[in-house]
Nucleic acid binder design. Structure first.
Length: 324
DNA sequence: CATCAGGGCCCTG
DNA sequence: CAGGGCCCTGAT
């Protein structure tokens, strides 16, 4: 299935300074796949975006600086957008990319950290962006489970090839994740044929639950982190690691650093201790003590920074852990 | 060729 | 609360 979006609506957004455009709109640690959901080059970002079950093409251009940020946003659609839809989209984009976030407290914390201050300073104004909605990031998190990067990419591509929507806009060809109801009516066997293994059952049940409206993403946004986590873990296929990803990336809960998975443990050990392997529990405690309610956000800065560096310099120990 | 573990989670005892 | 099993794939 594919669609071409020809109608273009343009508006300007002014994020709260400081704002780091490229750090916010490109996350080099995310695994690459063939059927891309988003694309980026310095100063420009594209993605497909679902809002109220409608699909749009989004292009964001950097027209400002870190201290005087300004975004030129183009929304591509099939038909003319009402004033109300445009205003709601602005709020949604602001939520997903934390355009209004007040970083002063975090900055103060960063300044008191002699070791990583250079990293925080380099990325000053970077947001923890949540490009996808809850269902979409859930799909991505599930293909991540108990798999190497290459296999995760394969699974996502297989799913997108079968259920995804090819979206053409502004000279770009990107893909979008299907609506839950589409996958809800497919048999587990058919999902298994896409080689997602035992995750087929997760996808089936999750899609059914979302299609039936069992989860209200917007209502969740207003709940305290603890309640949010309890509800997320109740979803079939969501455990501590997936809940952490969702809490941080969809709901911007900056403290969500309560679980360290084995491969993260290896990378954190190198980054924070210069050692091969430090106990996950120790890492968790140390980071929480040092960064408190910004624990996950601080780690995000340091994590993405090393993946940015990887673009230009060879980091042998990192290459070994990524295992493409 | 066989065996193993991987960006976890569910289920059982 | 600990531990086995799970789909598939690339590494060893």
């Amino acid at each position: 299935m594919h669609m071409t979006l020809t109608y273009r609506t343009i508006f300007i957004l002014a994020p709260k300074p400081p704002f780091h455009f490229d750090g916010t709109f490109h996350k080099p640690s995310h695994f690459p796949n063939r059927l891309k959901l988003e694309d980026w080059k310095p100063g420009t970002y594209w993605q497909t975006i679902r809002f109220r079950k409608r699909l749009f093409g989004l292009m964001v251009e950097n027209k400002g600086t870190v201290t005087k940020p300004k975004l030129k946003v183009s929304v591509f659609s099939q038909s003319r957008l009402s004033r109300e839809v445009v205003e709601s989209l602005k709020r949604e984009i602001a939520y997903r990319f934390e355009l209004e976030k007040d970083l002063r407290e975090f900055q103060a914390l960063a300044k008191r950290d002699p070791r990583f201050y250079p990293v925080f300073k380099k990325w000053m104004g970077m947001r923890n962006s949540g490009q996808y909605n809850l269902y979409e990031l859930l799909v991505i998190s599930v293909v991540l489970q108990n798999a190497t990067v290459r296999r995760s990419s394969q699974m996502l591509d297989a799913l997108l090839g079968r259920f995804g929507i090819k979206v053409i806009f502004g000279g770009k060809v990107l893909h979008a994740i299907w609506l839950p109801k589409v996958m809800a009516r497919v048999s587990e066997q058919e999902l298994r044929r896409l080689k997602v293994g035992y995750r087929a059952k997760f996808f089936k049940r999750l899609s059914q639950d979302f299609a039936r409206g069992k989860i209200d993403e917007l209502a969740l946004r207003n709940k305290p982190a603890e309640d949010m986590k309890k509800e997320l873990v109740r979803l079939y296929g969501v455990g501590p690691e997936t809940a952490r990803i969702l809490l941080f990336e969809v709901f911007h809960h900056d403290a969500a650093f309560d679980h360290v998975s084995p491969w993260q443990q290896k990378i954190y050990s190198r980054l924070f201790y210069g050692k091969r392997l430090v106990a996950a529990e120790k890492i968790r405690r140390d980071i929480q003590r040092r960064y408190g309610k910004y624990a996950m956000l601080a780690v995000h800065y340091i994590w993405e920074d090393v993946f940015w560096r990887r673009k230009h310099e060879h980091i042998p120990w990192l290459e070994k852990e990524i295992r493409l």
